[in-house]
Design a binder for these strands. Structure first.
Lengths: 121, 121
DNA sequence: TGCAAGTATGTAGTATACTGTATAGTTTAA
DNA sequence: TTAAACTATACAGTATACTACATACTTGCA
């Protein structure tokens, strides 16, 4: 169980950002009930995993709202099995289409490079 | 040569967004010098290509600033051959790393799906 | 014990990328 | 010829995702 600064060090995500993510409901830590002098929040390994997932999903263009959908499908007990699978299947399709787009962009840049090297562009 | 509404129809990008992109320097149309009664702007096929490129690059998480770098490498005569190639090579690396991240995210979602199907998650 | 460092809460500010509104002039088709 | 539709310009407003600041309390170490 880690405090927020350790979480930040492990993931490279600023403390402010972690708090922001927690406020938007992407995950939550826990206070220790036996400690009465403070309300420090502790985070387990699952939160680290979620943060790493968030980091990657963000780079490839998913919004926090989209990421929250997946994270909820992952952990929320309130959602039905069917609803969870539907969300995840939709995401998998989006991911495949993103991979395709990336390959198109890559090809276009390669063509552009070619033209520049040949002195056309 | 198209007017802005046709450009919007062909690409699916709202007129307001197209104007915004033009203002940020991603491309530019031309007014016809022989027409004196208005200052309507006309766009050629190159602009359509740029817009399609922008659309794809955005979905996969590139910012407009990053996209502008590539577009400038593509078309700006002011940049040296070397500078252009450097920008494009950097982007190609970013794209490859994005593809890798997408595959990791995909794998994680697949595992999650599996767990849900088995009734673990 | 005292003080730096860490933590929590709340609120305001910033950057990016639009999106809408107002105003005014132009074109086109009935 | 006039009304609907299109165009340009400017500026305000919104959504998302942070980022910074102020305040106050807590912990850990010299």
């Amino acid at each position: 169980m880690k405090l927020i600064s350790q979480l930040s060090k492990e993931t490279g995500i600023p403390i402010g950002t972690i708090r922001f993510y927690e406020k938007t409901g992407l995950f939550s830590g826990k206070t220790k009930k036996d400690v009465t002098t403070n309300n420090y929040v502790y985070y387990n390994e699952e939160v680290v995993e979620k943060l790493r997932f968030i980091q990657m999903a963000k780079v490839v263009g998913f919004s926090l709202a989209e990421i929250k959908e997946v994270v909820d499908a992952w952990y929320k007990k309130q959602l039905s099995k069917k609803a969870k699978l539907e969300v995840l299947d939709r995401k998998l399709l989006q991911i495949d289409s993103k991979i395709k787009e990336l390959k198109v962009v890559k090809k276009q840049i390669a063509i552009c490079k070619d033209n520049i090297e040949k002195g056309i562009g």
